[in-house]
Design a binder for these strands. Structure first.
Lengths: 233, 233
DNA sequence: CGATGTCGTGTTGTGTACAACATCGCAGAA
DNA sequence: TTCTGCGATGTTGTACACAACACGACATCG
């Protein structure tokens, strides 16, 4: 988690309100999706503002957007609560995300440039390292970074924005459920997905990459459900 | 356009900040999509706050969300500007919307209840009346209402939210382009679409409704592009 | 003992003043 | 005349004070 001092410095140096907002928004979203702020946690606007070295006003803007994104919920007199994610409510999101991932391969597929290819190779390497040294936070970050890499395969900007919105609504579920699952196995499966998609990208077959991603999303959700059922029994 | 007094009264009676926010947000979005606030118009937070009888603080929240929706843009020292819609930038949004409309018929299609059927019949009637007495504002409102009716055909809430977001980004383009087009013809085509989809809905064939909608979206966009090209020549 | 009212504390919501900034008009110099 | 600088004006951004509200602790009454 980025240190408070460093953040305050970045906010200080930022020129323009928009840039400051991006820092705030990105930082908070990162902390929520990495479960630094776990579901159900109560945040205090005043405490956050103090940490960032700003007043509540600009902070509130970021919080309101995150609320619209479905990651937070502000309740007067109570606090700002990190929303919980339950598998039941996420079923529809996952169904939609599956379709959207297929669309990445069909709508304005972009032939990957050198930088994108290098990025995929780097992710593949990180996945290998993760298998050697399992760590949930590293897993979560790799999941986020791989999502962003995958979205570079399409030029359709609205599709990217919509997918991102849905991704951040769902990605916390893994950090919540993985303790009940076989972590090593999940890491291995994820590494396999990254390998398969990287291969497809290197071939320039973006549509195949989309289908692979869709399949893994589907299977991943099935595994989540199965373990959730097992746990509640 | 809803009168200021009535709005102020509704805001006064509203209990809870969330309800007040909904009123503000809905009203502003309505005014933007009906071109009461046309693209490029400069709004003043202070003037709006005065009209609604509130302070800038709660108003700003609604404006920030609309900015995140892509309908407004706040620039310090200048004002809050209604974003312009250009056909070029909307190509990608339309491509995505076409796919999403097809998904309405595939993802959790809902068998229409009595109320939904009645709603479609009412819209069909309104389309007929519109053909008898053409009026651009009435056309715009029918377009919005029909969109919401169509979205009742799916139970997938994230799909509804995403579609709504994209719809409001695009729907203003019609009010902008129709003066260059054959209004009567467009109304006739739209009435035809409503009839066709209503028939499909009555049959309970939601998937067909999705395909019809997708086809009309595609053709509508093609006509828009063709008239835009014609106009710029 | 239990139920209930009441007050203290902490939170988000709102109002207001001021800072930061962009733009336009106008005066003055080249 | 034309360009330049600067100040007046209006805008959004930020800070801060207070209102509205929720909740728990505790006392008080039945």
């Amino acid at each position: 988690m980025t240190s408070s001092d460093e953040l305050a410095a970045r906010l200080e140096n930022a020129n323009g309100a928009q840039e400051r907002f991006e820092i705030l928004y990105g930082t908070l979203r990162e902390r929520i999706s990495m479960s630094d702020y776990p579901p159900g946690m109560r945040l205090s606007e005043e405490a956050l503002a103090a940490e960032f070295g700003i007043s509540r006003s600009p902070l509130r803007k970021a919080l309101k957007i995150l609320e619209a994104d479905g990651l937070l919920q502000s309740v007067q007199g109570v606090g700002t609560i990190v929303t919980d994610v339950d598998l039941e409510g996420l079923t529809q999101v996952y169904q939609l995300r599956m379709e959207l991932n297929e669309l990445v391969g069909r709508l304005s597929p972009k032939h990957p440039d050198e930088a994108t290819l290098a990025l995929f190779e780097e992710l593949r390497k990180r996945a290998e390292e993760l298998q050697a040294a399992p760590d949930m936070k590293v897993f979560a970050r790799l999941n986020i970074d791989f999502f962003h890499a995958f979205m570079r395969l399409t030029d359709n900007q609205p599709l990217v924005e919509v997918s991102e919105r849905l991704f951040y609504q769902t990605c916390r579920i893994w950090l919540k459920m993985i303790p009940m699952m076989d972590f090593a196995e999940e890491v291995a499966i994820f590494a396999g997905e990254i390998n398969a998609i990287t291969d497809a990208v290197r071939l320039g077959d973006t549509e195949a990459a989309g289908h692979i991603r869709r399949a893994h999303l589907s299977m991943g959700f099935t595994r989540l459900k199965s373990h959730a059922r097992q746990y509640t029994l």
